[in-house]
């Protein structure tokens, strides 16, 4: 019978299984408790670390909850005007074709005010990666209706629920950009469970690796929660997301390059 193993025996460098990547700064994230943004940030940084590409990557932060992404990602970054991130990424990639260039945008930024920049960057087939975090709401400004807000879903500007007759239907940007010849890889993922995180990371990694192929734009949507905006606990919001968001925004690859 072996001696009883203590916690101290386990917590040793040689037994390390998982720790936060060094490419995330030590700054406390500005997101609400339980918000999927933090996980999405981490996955992007883990991928850049695995690609050994800290020096070769330039990121674009949007306007919205992730406006301060540059505070947390230890890479060179630019903060874009609302919705313009794909235009910024376009220019940087054209001027530095060998760098990895990505945008990190929310649904208000990408699917409302930045629709033109998004569609045209996709249509030109810019060799960039777009990470699109869709939580169906404007989080930063206090829970207003977004283009992605579900039918009937309440928000501070659709207090009686989104009425599709007067407010339109949720915009499926990801399906939309998948139609464009300029997109090379389009996928929709989530980060609410361990298996979802693993799949999301695979998609994000592919979306970065694709940049070297120079075959067009890689677009990864991450359907996420906004527990503050939805007025739920984090775990409730993740369940609500599974029950309500996923039927409208089904997970999985939407456009996969032919092998």
């Amino acid at each position: 019978m072996a001696e009883k193993i203590t916690n101290n025996d386990i917590v040793q460098e040689e037994n390390l299984v998982y720790k936060k990547t060094d490419l995330l700064t030590d700054k406390s994230l500005s997101y609400c408790p339980g918000c999927g943004h933090g996980t999405a940030h981490r996955l992007v940084m883990e991928v850049i670390e695995e690609l050994n590409a800290q020096e070769e990557t330039i990121g674009i932060a949007p306007v919205g909850c992730s406006v301060l992404a540059y505070e947390f990602m230890d890479i060179d970054m630019q903060q874009a005007a609302h919705g313009r991130a794909p235009a910024l990424a376009t220019a940087i990639k054209r001027l530095y074709p060998e760098k990895y260039v990505f945008t990190y945008q929310g649904d208000g930024d990408l699917a409302a005010i930045g629709t033109a920049e998004t569609i045209h960057a996709c249509n030109r087939g810019e060799n960039i990666t777009i990470i699109f975090v869709n939580n169906g709401i404007y989080g930063m400004t206090g829970g207003q209706m977004a283009p992605t807000t579900l039918p009937g879903m309440k928000s501070s500007t659709s207090p009686y629920g989104r009425d599709v007759e007067t407010m339109g239907s949720p915009l499926k940007m990801t399906e939309l950009v998948a139609q464009l010849p300029g997109t090379y890889f389009v996928s929709r993922q989530a980060v609410h469970t361990p298996s979802a995180v693993r799949k999301a990371k695979k998609a994000i990694k592919k979306a970065f690796e694709n940049q070297k192929l120079k075959k067009g734009l890689s677009f990864v949507e991450i359907v996420s929660n906004c527990n503050s905006g939805w007025k739920m606990t984090p775990n409730q919001s993740n369940k609500w997301m599974v029950d309500n968001m996923f039927p409208y925004y089904p997970l999985g690859d939407i456009k996969v390059p032919e092998e």
Binding site: V17, K20, Y31
Partner: peptide, 22 residues
């Protein structure tokens, strides 16, 4: 030490260790 907690932690605050024991 499966690390499931750490990989879903939005704030990346969990570090995971694992040791094989008899």
């Amino acid at each position: 030490g499966c690390a499931n907690c750490a990989i879903v932690c939005p704030d990346g605050v969990i570090t995971v260790y694992r040791k094989k024991v008899d």
